[in-house]
Design a protein around this nucleic acid. Structure first.
Lengths: 209, 209, 209, 209
DNA sequence: AATGAATGAGTGTTCATTCAT
DNA sequence: CATGAATGAACACTCATTCAT
């Protein structure tokens, strides 16, 4: 029953572990200081290894950056995939908003890394945007259009609906510092924000009588 | 009849002109590459002057950065100031959204500069956030609460309403590259986005019968 | 029988060697041009290494400077420590003068480095002056006072005696160029100077009958 | 009886005044920081004029430096000129020491400027040293030799006697910071030092019976 | 798999000096 | 006489990357 081990492993155990450590460290650093603002030294220190050793795994700074981005993007799209065309639209969208909001709360660094890329013109993930991401958005927009066609929700531009949801949910990760400056450092604002956003969207989508 | 010339000018003509040129160039560069990603050389080149000459006006890179931020922040808050407590709430808010959206369309670089500061923890404008900005947000929230108390709009958390509007409108400046990757480069999406956002918000604010 | 090698060396062989090379080069350069007049490039070139490599060992120019000073100060105070309270005063002092003179002859660069620091207000070694150096001078003055009290030497201010000896001996290192301009480049003036100084001091210290 | 004014003045009143102001400022700055450690800006500021204006009077930094040195050297040699061959030797030398000491006390900056030049190899006044200064020293040495020949003072190397006097007196200007670190900041040590030095020298010069 | 050592190409900043007025 | 503006050349220091072991 056990998977047969290949004779020549492409990756040793320690390699896989170290790459994970590096990518975690890199996410911390890159999300906090941006690409140019981060140094390989910083990442190496946070990863608890020497700079040359780090570069043994990822030969250039750019490689580390792209690897982190790639890993991040994968999990980033996950919630969007879950829209069920046959589900109840408002419930489906509420579920989606909750999933997005959970990402912002639980993984704000990934959100900020992503936002930083966008802000600077997406030099590393331009292909991703016009490729897989566009496909996914188009698919999702199609589902929404079906709902509209069936009269299940009000007629609204599905693309801008998606963008609005993204914007509102990611805001609490990306502009966290601003939110905290206004609402106070320890306030539990994620729950309130979620309620407000879901209500705004659901009210906006209710079919007109 | 001639305007009397002040004997001691604090700034010469050429000084004012050059400072303006520098700040424009700096906005371009900083908004595109972030603080650390920008070099004084880049700014100088775009400003059409030598690096030492640029530093003759602003002694350190940081000074340029703060000057641009300051100039930007001033205009950034402008639309928020306009909420009229005695106006018709839904119309007032629609007007506000349009003003915000216009800023995103007409001055996306300022928006990205600001977003970049937030993303990196607002090292340069922390005081501004917890100071003038918080005051302004609190004032605005108070107006909205009044409207709610009078039953003019539905009961909704005013702070998260404000954040949502900010998020949705700024998104089209900050994530411009992503929007364009999905909707196409030359699509005139600002108008559609505005319509969608206004509708979402207005529907969400309509008082329950 | 073999000496056990310590597992964790704090300094590698090459590190110790290079630091020595750097400090030698730095003494040459700093003593010739002063702190501000010396460039890291100069020191690196004289040390036979690249500037970044030099800064790999001493992170800032100031670190190099302080390291040289510290190393120099240690050997600088050595002769003063040798005054034996129970020795014959005139012989003790003659020995001291000879030791000081030898330092000026054999290590004039250290003397000039030190003199330069003094001239500019001792920004880097102010603490040393009012700390260890003052203690040592006070101790020495006390010995001299004992000799005076016992009637072994004439009553003279011990502090100014010490300063005078320092001044006369160091002069041949610090003002070397002037001495050579007057006495000729290759004249062996150190020996004559020593004789003269010892005689002046000894005659001045002979107890009055 | 009045000196006729030349029609075309080589120097206007204001020119002479400003040059004096500049040289005073330059002495302050150069003596404190050395040549390379001083900036034209610093001198201009202390002189209360703009940098270009300062450079209107002295075209290059080096010109200012040389002018200060020259002015300083003139007054520096003054006391040495005063040795009267026919005076009483011990009294003459005591007078000389007092004059030298007065210079150290009243014009320590000039002393330090001069010392700094020597320390760094006298790049600007090498000619002066082997020229006028050597002549003066030789002359003075000749007078001393005459005294020795007449049996008025003990046989001692006149050159090293001169150097010793210079060293001891200048020490209190050049190493002022060190002296103050040991003797205390406000102690009036110049008088004591003078007494000590005169006594050392006079005792050393008393003819042997 | 890991690290100490080394370096070329920047990067912000200073400064003497010149230019134009 | 005086000054605001401008710049080339340096200079301290950083950083991604490579080399040797």
């Amino acid at each position: 029953m056990a998977e047969p081990q290949p004779k020549t492993q492409t990756k040793t155990r320690i390699q896989a572990i170290n790459e994970d450590i590096i990518l975690s460290a890199a996410l911390e650093v890159f999300s906090a200081f941006g690409y140019r603002g981060s140094t390989v030294d910083q990442i190496a220190e946070r990863a608890g290894m020497s700079k040359p050793n780090l570069l043994y795994y990822f030969h250039r700074k750019d490689d580390i950056y792209r690897a982190v981005l790639e890993k991040t993007l994968a999990q980033w799209l996950t919630p969007l995939r879950g829209l069920d065309p046959n589900g109840e639209p408002l419930a489906e969208i509420a579920r989606y908003i909750r999933a997005k909001m959970a990402m912002s709360r639980d993984n704000p660094k990934a959100s900020r890394l992503f936002a930083n890329e966008m802000l600077h013109g997406a030099p590393a993930i331009g292909d991703f945007l016009s490729g897989p991401m566009k496909v996914l958005v188009d698919d999702t927009a199609r589902i929404i259009k079906t709902w509209i066609a069936k009269g299940q929700i009000a007629a609204i531009d599905p693309y801008h609906l998606i963008f609005s949801i993204w914007a509102m949910t990611q805001h609490y990760a990306d502009f966290d510092i601003q939110v905290r400056a206004v609402l106070g450092a320890d306030s539990e604002h994620f729950a309130d924000a979620e309620t407000t956003i879901i209500r705004l969207i659901q009210d906006g989508l209710k079919p007109r009588s």
